Amino acid sequence: MLVLPVPIIVALVLVFLFVRAAVGGKTPKMLMALLLASAGQSVLVGTVQYYGFTSLRWLQPVTASVIPALAWIAFVEASIRIRLHSRDWLHFLVPAVVLLCVLFLPAIIDVVLCSLFVGYGCAILVMLHRQAGDFAHMRLASGHIPSLVWRFIALALIASAISDVMIIAAKTGGNDQIVGVILSVTSSMALLTIGFLCLSPDIAIDIDTNDPPENPASSHIPRNVDITEHKSTMIQLEDLLVGQRLYLDPDLTLARISRRMGIPLKQISAAINATTGENVSRYINKFRIEHACNELGRGQNVTTAMLSSGFNTKSNFNREFLRITGKTPSQWQQQSQAD
């Protein structure tokens, strides 16, 4: 009877997820690369730990260091700029640095890997906090889900560092025999978690080829602006949203709004936050919920009202409806009909 070790099973699952993503054609390239790198790392761990290819053990930390760097670049691609800058590719020098450590400073490898996973995981969490959920190229209809998915990916990276801490503790305590078990189990769990999260449709990047090309300056953080300029930006934004009913587009993104207005997306985000205290998604959803209320008042059912108002998931629609109106869609409709 053929028995496969856990890392090999995880690798097969990740390869399946990669093929599924490739066929679907909606998963961003960097997330697909992260899937493939995770699968490769799992194969390497299984090969070394269970099939006796110990000569490849030196390669494990080098390939492992690719994963947090790829996760960061995928996050940048999704949340900040669709076209990566040359400085973004410098993160791929991380494996070269780790290789040098393997060759000349092997004693610090575990500490270096732990620092990389924790560092990149924390960097994603910090950027999530700074952006307040405003992703450049993700559908605003997804609401808080993209932030939640990326938060879990960041936590999975940090959790991966726990295995390195446990390995260091095991080696220090003279328990070298359990090092392989710790690496296999913890690494497999973290990689599998990252793999499934990568396929979330809510973190797929949406690019409208009919829109004008992205302005490189649109992702830059603007200079300090006064409230007058914020109000001017808001007037232009409302004219665009209401005049063209753009808020009804379920594929609407902050980057698309920025290109239509010819204003840096950071400036739009800052204006909305300064004048309303909300992020872009919540601001847009107020228009959508108002439209949904009108549809419900006309006798449309909840699902029809949801889809016609720019929402594509019932959970996000119900949550936003309750937040804005204080009632569920059904409760609002019943009260409206009673009045």
Rank of each mutant, 00 (worst) to 15 (best):
T325C: 09
N301Q: 08
L84N: 07
I108H: 10
N210H: 07
M306S: 11
R83V: 07
R57M: 12
H291M: 08
A169L: 12
Q300T: 09
A22F: 03
N285L: 03
I109Y: 12
D164H: 13
C122K: 05
V185C: 06
F53A: 15
I9P: 02
D249Q: 13
S65M: 05
R260L: 15
E295N: 12
D339G: 14
L157T: 02
G310I: 08
Q333F: 05
S42A: 14
L70H: 00
D249W: 11
R20V: 01
I194G: 00
S184L: 03
W89L: 12
Q49E: 13
N294R: 15
A74W: 04
I158Q: 04
G25S: 08
L35Y: 02
R81C: 05
L252N: 11
P95C: 10
L183G: 03
S218N: 13
D211V: 07
L183E: 11
I67F: 06
C101T: 15
L246I: 07
V62L: 11
D134M: 12
S187W: 03
W332P: 01
S281E: 11
L254V: 11
L155W: 01
T54L: 11
K231G: 10
Q300S: 15
G121T: 01
I124T: 07
S65E: 04
A274N: 14
M261T: 04
N210L: 10
F92W: 13
D211T: 13
V225T: 00
L197Q: 00
R282H: 11
G143K: 01
A69Q: 03
Q49R: 09
I8K: 05
N210S: 05
H91Y: 13
I73T: 15
S309R: 03
P95A: 13
